[in-house]
């Protein structure tokens, strides 16, 4: 039996002016997981998140949140979902605390009696207690981001959808957010985290989904994704051209030369075997390093090296 899914989509798609921004996405986010949602700029991450939360109407597809069909169940499901979508947004002329008060009061199911305590808690959790009385327009980008998180944490949530939560934050803040995400996950919440910071994702996530040009290219546990790219071997040699030929001849893939270094994916080839062949072929080996693929390698392997934003 499939585990409970906090987010499930089937064929979710969105056309903008006839062009697909999101094209048949099937997400399966297990309950209790910390799910890293990756993809280059313009790959459809934020559009997907907006559809999940009912801000955009999908052009096709179905989806459910916390086991309930959306968008019909939005009013009963969304109270359990804390979200930060494409940066924080608040009223500039109001203080941080007044802003939280307004959002807390503008919907059903939140007790006014516990409101001041909950707001104080949320502000303390993101380290904003001292700046709570300041007007939002005086906040720095990082403080605004923190206030956005505080708003998502006003009540205990079963699901948190965090779109680039560390955007604009100092290293200290980034660490705190990582800590916060782990804490939330430890409390049993599902965290759906979109980020460009692959090292962030690698540190906190149990599952990963990779978007590219509106499609979900991969969706696996983090260890699965990392092992799918396989280990690589990097060698520093006197004759890189010859070494590359030997590696390719052994059946290694993705072989590339850069300066005096040659690298390639090992596949089934053993590093010691490669070493013996190189030496046997008269290549002088100065260094030979087997490497495990990082999330960045896996990401680039899936989405390509190109720097241009998908049109």
């Amino acid at each position: 039996m499939a585990p409970d899914l906090a987010i499930e989509t089937h064929g979710l798609a969105k056309l903008f002016a006839g062009r697909p921004a999101v094209d048949g996405v099937d997400l399966a986010v297990p309950a209790g997981s910390t799910y890293g949602f990756l993809g280059p700029n313009g790959s459809g991450k934020t559009t997907t998140i907006r559809m999940l939360l009912g801000l955009l109407t999908p052009s096709a597809g179905t989806w459910s949140i916390l086991g309930r069909t959306m968008p019909e169940a939005a009013m009963s499901t969304l109270p359990h979902v804390g979200a930060l979508v494409e940066g924080p947004a608040f009223y500039p002329w109001m203080s941080g605390r007044d802003n939280l008060e307004r959002f807390d009061a503008m919907g059903p199911g939140r007790s006014p009696a516990t409101r001041p305590a909950r707001i104080a808690d949320a502000l303390a959790r993101v380290g904003l207690t001292a700046a709570a009385g300041k007007k939002y327009k005086a906040y720095s980008l990082g403080m605004r981001q923190r206030l956005g998180l505080a708003s998502a944490l006003l009540v205990p949530r079963r699901l948190l959808v965090l779109d680039e939560p560390t955007n604009g934050m100092d290293p200290q803040g980034t660490r705190e957010i990582r800590h916060l995400v782990r804490e939330l996950a430890a409390d049993g919440a599902t965290v759906f985290l979109s980020s460009h910071l692959l090292s962030e994702i690698q540190q906190v996530c149990s599952h990963v989904g990779v978007m590219h040009r509106g499609r979900l290219l991969a969706q696996q546990t983090l260890p699965e994704l990392l092992s799918s790219t396989g280990p690589r071997l990097r060698a520093e040699v006197d004759d890189p051209g010859r070494a590359a030929q030997v590696m390719a001849g052994l059946g290694m893939t993705d072989v590339s030369v850069s300066g005096t270094q040659v690298a390639g994916s090992l596949g089934e080839v053993l590093p010691e075997e490669c070493c013996r062949r190189l030496v046997g072929a008269g290549v002088a080996v100065r260094m030979l390093v087997p490497e495990h693929a990082s999330l960045e390698d896996a990401f680039v392997a899936l989405t390509g090296e190109g720097f241009d934003v998908a049109g």
């Binding site: 939360l53 009912g54 801000l55 009013m75 979508v85 947004a89 919907g107």
Partner: peptide
């Protein structure tokens, strides 16, 4: 314009 509309709808204000 402020972007607060999306947060009101997610709240959900209805």
């Amino acid at each position: 314009n402020l972007g607060t509309l999306r947060y009101l709808l997610i709240r959900p204000a209805g």
